Computed example of a mutant assay.
Amino acid sequence: MKKIKPLLVILLLMITSISFGQITKERKPDRIIKKDYVIIEAFVKKITEKNIEYSMPNEDLINTLDTSHIGRIEFANGKTQTFTEAKENNDVSNTSGSKHDPSNIEITPNTIAILPVPFVNTETLVTSEELSKFAQNDVYDELIKKSSNIAPLTVQDPRTTNSLLRKAGIDYKNIDETSIEDIQNILGVDNIVAAKVSYTVTENQSSYGSTTIKSGQKDKATVSDYSNTNKNMKYEYHIYFDMYKKGNKIYTKNRSPFFTTKDSWKDSLTYLLKRSPIYIKK
């Protein structure tokens, strides 16, 4: 019996070790968000006044990062720690849900950016990256064509917009989860166009045909039938359109196109854009 007890102890230790390893493996990493909006997903080990220590998932190597480069840390347990620079030295403060420090971000006056336009199928909840960028470029082209109507605003190129958003870990799928103030700081603009399109697609079928009877030889008649079926796709869109200036919503409208063709969403977006506060009729 005395020999069995040590074996049980070893077995229990092995089970505990395996369970602890599984818990550690399943733990979500923290999010270190740098001031240039680069996001590092890692496990924070230690925080001091001058730097933090962290390790990447599945690695034991300890990395060090200067706190002057960090905007905030979003811990896996839901807490947030924001890092702000004081005039004389670095000051670390703990807050929950605080916003980015815009002191080192240059906002160019009289600039406007068009965000990617999410297209969401309301039945399948599937989004389309191609349609999102296509609609974004369509709004951009409309503003460029009517640049004299939106003076003195300058429109940011969508390539620049999307590149800056990508560096911050934002795309058409999660753009609704980011505050407009943060997006404004990321893009360096003071005006933003944010639109969204929900849609459904249905198929309508219509059939038509005819029957012809012809007399043939020896008083025999021949019958010929002709029929055809047309398939028509019906697109029902609903467009949501918002405009922001310096973080404040200055215009919000929504509209459904009268027609149900594939490209009918374009007319509604243009309609809402021309009735926004930035557009001056000439």
Rank of each mutant, 00 (worst) to 15 (best):
K25I: 13
V197D: 05
N90M: 14
I192Q: 07
I47Q: 06
T229S: 05
Y271E: 06
Q22H: 14
V189E: 03
S132Q: 08
K253M: 06
Y172M: 08
L273M: 04
E41D: 11
N121H: 04
K25Q: 14
T212M: 04
N191C: 10
K234D: 14
L13A: 09
E74N: 08
S148P: 12
V38A: 09
V117T: 04
K46H: 03
I180F: 03
I144V: 01
L165C: 07
I183K: 02
K173W: 06
I250P: 05
S132I: 07
S55W: 05
I186E: 01
N77V: 03
T261R: 02
K25Y: 11
E41N: 04
T80G: 00
S276D: 08
S132Y: 02
M243H: 05
A86Q: 13
S103I: 10
I183M: 05
H238E: 10
N230V: 14
N51I: 03
V126Y: 15
T252E: 12
L11F: 09
I33P: 08
F83M: 00
N174D: 07
P152D: 12
W265S: 02
G71F: 06
I114G: 04
K266Y: 04
I10K: 01
V139C: 02
A135Q: 03
G21V: 02
K231M: 08
Y251C: 09
R72K: 07
K173I: 15
I170M: 09
H238S: 09
T178G: 12
E129T: 11
T124S: 03
T261S: 10
A151V: 14
V193N: 00
T222D: 08
P158K: 04
S96T: 15
I52C: 03
Y199K: 00
Q81A: 11
H100A: 14
